[in-house]
Amino acid sequence: MSDGTPTAHEPSLLELERRAYRKRSTWRSVGIAAGSTLIFATVATLLVVNTPGWEAVKESFFNWEIGKESFPDILKGLWLNIQALFFAGIGVAIFGTTLAIVRSLRGPVFFPLRMLATIYVDLFRGVPVLIVLYLVGFGIPALGIFPPLSAAVWGTIAIGLCYSAYVAEVLRAGMEAVNPSQRVAARSLGLTHGKTLRMVVIPQGVRKVIPALMNDFVSMQKDVGLISVLGAVDAIRAAQIDAATTYNFTPYVVAAMLFIAISLPLTRLTDYVAARMNKREQIGGVV
């Protein structure tokens, strides 16, 4: 390619022929993709619309009037989800990093801490989020040692506890992927183990797992909807209330649309970042 090179090089006839060929095949690919998408969408729509129960389904899931009416309530509920996401995100960043660091500490002094962190991660990765929500949301307040907090707060804490475990594992994988020679170089300068982690290993490790971390964040974005099971009036709970009063499922569809709307920008961004990192690290551009 001639990008950036100041010398003006006239492409040969052979290269021009190759470019023309690539262009033709690109257009052909686009055409095929567009055609197959259109056919698939048409067939899928026809199949769904011609099912015997479609009219009933349309009435109870896609009722425009009910959807419009429930929208403000659900949007208000969504604000609670966004707040929960915000605070859980901060909590996960702090606690998840702490767990990852504790698990990577060496030396016998740290054995109990390391073991605790390992047990924690194993437990929370294994238990379904819903069960953690019930245990934290109903169990901890029942101890009677905490001031009364809203269901949303306990829900946020529960989500944060679960995702800290996931994120800790991702971060640890990233830290282990940093070449050991980086550690040697840092220690040779006289940096302590802690400073080596903080200034050399973690910054490089995090970079390696950014797409995976963003992926977890997208998952968390929808899982904050689960705080509704504790009674917090979030988007899902608001939809549930509207559904119960109208005997119609459309509010759930509205809630779903809103969740998609907030996650879509980040999903796209995740793909973009991952693609860019691949491009930067991969030399073989053809494969």
Binding site: S181, A185, A186, L189, G190, L191, K195, M199, Q204
Partner: peptide, 25 residues
């Protein structure tokens, strides 16, 4: 110490690589 494979820190600019020990140690 100087290594065969340089082992510079890829996430730091040259000036930060060079001054890391002076600043932090």
């Amino acid at each position: 110490v100087v290594f065969q494979q340089f082992n510079l820190f890829p996430h730091m600019r040259v000036i930060d690589n060079v001054t890391l020990a002076a600043r932090k140690v």
